[in-house]
Design a protein around this nucleic acid. Structure first.
Lengths: 338, 338
DNA sequence: TTGTAAGCGTTATCAT
DNA sequence: ATGATAACGCTTACAA
């Protein structure tokens, strides 16, 4: 930078002024500086800048599983919003091995990260998140810690769940089993609540709804489907499986195929998330679309608001979900033969 | 840090020595320092450290599309290796809009990134990569620029391609059409070469192999399948579609379904990559597995080698692929009726 | 409008 | 073995 100053015949502060528009500078000198920058092919040193500014223009993105396309899509939204603001995104994937949240607090405290976007999704304990939030702004995506009003962007899971369950009930299904998500996750609770609302609305007893709890992964969908569909009297077998996310729905679908139960003829299945593969399955999965990209994008702009305005913007945004009706649901066959 | 020094009754240099094991320090004083660190809950400032050390302990990961599970899996490998070395990974997703590679060179030059892992995949022009490589070490994953020996981790695409094509030929298919990838991508060339080798090995004329070139995306698989399967005389319709990646294979599969062509009874399809969804499709896709996670991991350790040893380690690693034989291939039906 | 100089929090050199 | 002290490259009062 000194070189630039010398080359342009001005002082370093002048160079800084033009580089940041942070001071008045005569037009001719400004262009001299710009020229020098170009000639010397100068790039400012970001570390020095961060040191001075006490901010690294970098946020963290905590994501439990990149191969889950819902998360991946959120991530693209985050990166999109961040790079539009010249902010870098560092990828944090909590390894089961190392206790990771501790790492992130260190990252926040050491100024390497100005804030973070946090995606839970497979049951991280909220304690870690709260710890994190003490040291810098963090915004939650599709998660909410009851009692602590952390900023977050969520989708209207409850309504989506209610609607998709209503769709199933509307088709005439009476014996429905739910494969829910990890009970400590807010989304899992919301979806469950939505399902129950639907049952109640159709005159059923929400508390009688059979619920099995999984971990949002495919494997648990498979296992819980096995459990749900294995019954002494076949006439009591559920005719529909309502799954709290697509991955588990896919697991359930696989289980059905493995025992030659036809979907949707023998058993209907619905999921939640509308990850890209869901429309590729046979049958195509009826599910609830979450605006994943948007959620990531909005979460990030919310984080930026928190970062530079002290002025609290609305700390919670709710985006809406839409039911995707596809092939995996059909009216149940009459009870008689089975 | 001054506070820590004061609290421990030592000088800042001693604190630095302790924190970095960078100098001799008496055991008692060392523990006094460690205590002070704990008491004051001190975390070193990373910006200052980078400024001094001229390295940010951060690498870039350039990835064209996170929702592609092959890339996502590579990314997990990268993050795994990086965090094992206390190095951060910043996510770079080239937005079509902004000319992105320029951004990355800035990032490298401004010391925010020590190096980068580069995944092409949909045809970024090599020029950009070379430009990048002038300013810092970058390692390519699953890509190779002929003539420039950039460090890279690749999988043995050609062999995988040869093997999967052989499998198809072995089943008795005579009329095969290839849906290839972007011609400027090395992987696309390799796979094509592999297919041709297989044809030659089976006594066919490799140059007579019908090849349509796509862009590795689902949509182009759909369109090219349409093109390949639309022929005046049905007896000349290909009985097998060999696709250079799974996404295009999936597109092809969708096209077949859309016109009620049964897979694999009417037409066999194979892909490449073995992304997770491929085993979920109906029929399950026969494909070639690339060791994606490993590729990311190894690429990253290679990058670290380049970073601290000047000693050139082997600049190109080749990992092996394995054909996954599944349901989407069957022997062709005899020509007569169609 | 422009330049001088004092930090920002580390690390590393050099005396002690 | 330990402690001053000078960088590292930038921003920003403050002075001119």
């Amino acid at each position: 930078m000194k070189d630039v100053a010398r080359h342009a015949g001005v002082s370093v502060s002048t160079v800084s002024y033009v580089l940041n528009d942070s001071g008045p500078v005569a037009p001719d000198r400004r262009s001299r500086v710009l020229d020098a920058v170009r000639v010397l092919d100068y790039a400012p040193n970001a570390s020095a800048r961060s040191l001075k500014r006490r901010s690294a223009a970098t946020i963290g993105l905590v994501i439990p599983d990149l191969t889950n396309q819902f998360f991946a899509t959120v991530a693209e939204g985050v990166v999109g919003a961040a790079s539009a603001n010249d902010v870098l995104v560092v990828l944090c994937v909590p390894q089961a091995s190392t206790d990771a949240e501790d790492q992130y607090t260190r990252l926040l405290r050491s100024q390497r990260l100005d804030g973070a976007i946090y995606l839970t999704g497979t049951g991280t304990l909220p304690g870690a998140i709260l710890e994190l939030a003490r040291f810098g702004p963090i915004v939650l995506v599709d998660e909410h810690i009851p009692g602590f009003d952390l900023p977050s962007v969520i989708s209207d899971s409850r309504r989506g769940a209610r609607e998709v369950a209503s769709h199933v009930l509307e088709q005439g299904h009476k014996r429905i089993a739910v494969i829910g998500g990890p009970p400590r996750l807010w989304t899992a609770q919301q979806r469950l609540a939505g399902y129950r609302e639907a049952v109640a609305a159709y005159g059923g007893d929400p508390d009688a709804l059979p619920v099995l709890l999984g971990d949002y992964r495919k494997q648990s969908g498979f296992e819980l489907a096995a459990q749900a569909l294995t019954t002494d009297r076949p006439t009591e077998r559920p005719t529909a499986l309502v799954c709290a996310n697509d991955l588990m729905a896919i697991g359930a679908l696989e289980y059905c195929k493995s025992i030659h139960l036809r979907v949707p003829e023998d058993v209907s299945i619905v999921g939640f998330d509308d990850i890209p593969v869901s429309a590729l399955l046979t049958p195509k999965l009826t599910t609830v679309r979450q605006p994943a990209h948007d959620m990531g994008y909005r979460a990030t702009t919310l984080l930026f608001d928190l970062l530079d305005n002290e002025s609290r913007t609305q700390p919670e945004e709710i985006l809406s979900t839409t039911v995707q009706i596809r092939e995996s649901v059909l009216p149940p066959v009459p009870d008689a033969q089975d």
